[in-house]
């Protein structure tokens, strides 16, 4: 009996030691050993991440994942997409289930400081807005006091609304739905006067309505929503790889490098283009990657403008304009640090 007890104690102790001893390899080593990047994206959000009719993941967030895979492996298809729920996305990243979270996630102070994660550069400057039926005759969000507003749960959305109406000095009724479908249906049926989400999301809600012209997006942007990819904290090298994969997309647009002309551009005399595409210096080695990492990114997914236009641009169903997501020298907010 006593021996059995001791054996059990020993087994429990061994389990504890085993559980704490994991996680010593860096993310890059893990990803390379696995031969694939695992990227967390959202559940079916057309334009950002949604499988097409052939089952291929399409969208802006998905292309960010592909550019990282291209940087690491030289092959944009070496990526597995994991659909993450809005409530468990950070846990999926913390636990190591995914290597990077690329999922319309707003970078905020409390998320960065208390969740054990780091955000990369902002890939999309968004802001929360409100969509209302035209028949309501509302011109400003400030008029919406006492109205019912539909939202999705567990995001910064409900807090922003609460803050907004506290500053305006009015009350409102918050109706929260777990699923985007119920949320939309309740809004179309008139249960709520308005629906609130990121403006990019509202564009797609309006696009799928029976008659999109019956709805109008109010002018106010009630919050800043810089959407950024996130990685686990304390892995500086991996964060650099994710950040510079994003910056490479922006820098390529700035320098006029496109998927089509990247081979010609590689012969360019411009020293910065030489460094970006691996013709000069050994920037790739500094990241622990192949020296052609920048070339591989642009060759496989194109530059920022191409990624945006393909997934969200005016020719797509979402029909979004670039807005603040334009290059700094054209009055926008995209500003990649120099590649040197």
């Amino acid at each position: 009996m006593k021996r059995k007890f001791l054996a059990l104690c020993a087994a429990t102790a061994a389990l504890m030691v085993g559980a704490t001893a994991a996680q010593s390899a860096t993310t890059l080593e893990t990803v390379k050993a696995r031969g694939k990047l695992i990227c967390g994206v959202s559940l079916s959000t057309p334009g950002f991440a949604a499988a097409d009719d052939k089952g291929r993941m399409q969208g802006f967030d998905a292309d960010i994942c592909r550019s990282i895979a291209a940087a690491v492996f030289g092959d944009p298809e070496k990526v597995d997409f994991v659909l993450t729920n809005i409530n468990t996305r950070f846990q999926a990243l913390q636990s190591g289930e995914i290597d990077v979270l690329s999922r319309q996630t707003t970078a905020t102070f409390s998320r960065e400081t208390s969740l054990g994660i780091d955000f990369g550069p902002t890939v999309f400057y968004d802001g929360q807005g409100l969509l209302v039926p035209k028949s309501l005759g509302v011109a400003s969000a400030k008029e919406l006091t006492d109205a019912a507003i539909c939202t999705l749960p567990g995001t910064t959305t409900s807090q922003n609304l609460t803050d907004f109406f506290r500053t305006v000095g009015g009350k409102f009724e918050l109706v929260v739905f777990e699923s985007p479908d119920e949320n939309r249906a309740a809004f179309y049926s008139g249960r709520c006067e308005a629906i609130s989400s990121d403006r990019s999301d509202l564009a797609s809600i309006r696009a799928v309505a029976n008659n999109p012209d019956d709805y109008v997006l109010l002018p106010e942007t009630i919050s800043k929503e810089p959407l950024a990819p996130a990685v686990r904290q304390n892995d500086s090298n991996w964060r650099d790889i994710v950040s510079w994969s994003v910056y490479m997309l922006m820098a390529a647009e700035e320098k006029g490098i496109t998927q089509a002309n990247v081979d010609e551009m590689a012969k360019s005399e411009d020293p910065e283009i030489q460094r970006m595409l691996g013709g000069a210096d050994e920037l790739g080695k500094m990241l622990g990657l192949d020296n052609k990492w920048g070339y591989n990114i642009v060759k496989s997914v194109g530059n920022y403008a191409e990624v945006f236009d393909r997934n969200l641009g005016e020719k797509t169903k979402l029909g979004m304009t670039r807005g603040p997501n334009t290059q700094w020298n054209a009055g926008g907010l995209l500003y990649a640090p120099p590649v040197r």
Partner: peptide
Amino acid sequence: GYPDLVMVSNTIMNQTG
């Protein structure tokens, strides 16, 4: 969309992490 214990907790979980 009925704000029961789980829904309120979920929202809080997401805000505080």
